[in-house]
Design a protein around this nucleic acid. Sequence first.
DNA 1: GGGCCACATTAGAACAGTTCCAACCTTCGA
DNA 2: TCGAAGGTTGGAACTGTTCTAATGTGGCCC
Lengths: 133, 133
Amino acid sequence: MTELVERLRERGWRMTAQRRVIAEAMAGDHVHLAADEVYERARAALPEVSLATVYNTLNELVEMGEVLELTHADGRKRYDPNTVERHHHLVCTSCGRMLDVTADEPGLAESERHGFDLHDVEVTFRGRCPDCA
Amino acid sequence: MTELVERLRERGWRMTAQRRVIAEAMAGDHVHLAADEVYERARAALPEVSLATVYNTLNELVEMGEVLELTHADGRKRYDPNTVERHHHLVCTSCGRMLDVTADEPGLAESERHGFDLHDVEVTFRGRCPDCA
DNA sequence: GGGCCACATTAGAACAGTTCCAACCTTCGA
DNA sequence: TCGAAGGTTGGAACTGTTCTAATGTGGCCC
């Protein structure tokens, strides 16, 4: 059982076969799957799972804060199960591959805050990955 | 005539009535309109302009590097005409309002580069704007 | 000025990703 | 065992964007 499934179970989330395969589909480091990729993987384990359930489940996981929703330039949302370690992303502008990285977090000067109540910073490094170079 | 229109003219871009109203629709600081908002504004100045032209034109401006394409959490692309000063963004998580800010740019340690040829860093600060607080 | 051609524009169809819906199925407590 | 709450489903609907094929137009050449 994966860490994520473990955590969900502890939170008393009703664990059905569908939800389990969906949560397990996202296991691993540097995993940032789009919904259809989660669907693919989930179906490999449980063929009768439906796309609607994948979307329902992913949205619930995001609301619960167990998964991060990332917006990628191609318009498809990605889902990142790594909510434990604070991290940022390195994206290949050519193939779209996305890796987790740690980096210093820039601050925002008071004079630049425009009265906002700041609560998060997201850093995306863009470049060309070795395979595409 | 706006700066952007000026620059485009200098680049020898064929300036039609439609292209002008589209380029002018994006004038100003802290402007990050979605395509349909550009369409609205353009139509106010030239009612017979079509949505297809708005998309064609925006995509061309992005390719020419005269406008930046931003991906917003709601899935709609935003277009930022401020390509002159390097800047980052401050986004309200509640209403989606987006402001330009300047901030230090974080670097990425060699050990975290995974062999990528880095060429850009994008920083997004998230918070709640005064109107939404 | 008139004709021509490359290119701009257009409405609407097509498309992709996501959400909604209404029917059905499961789980679990009483 | 029953009923209610909630999970799952396929397909329809919706939204933002791109494509297509027909039509319009700016500006160069004569």
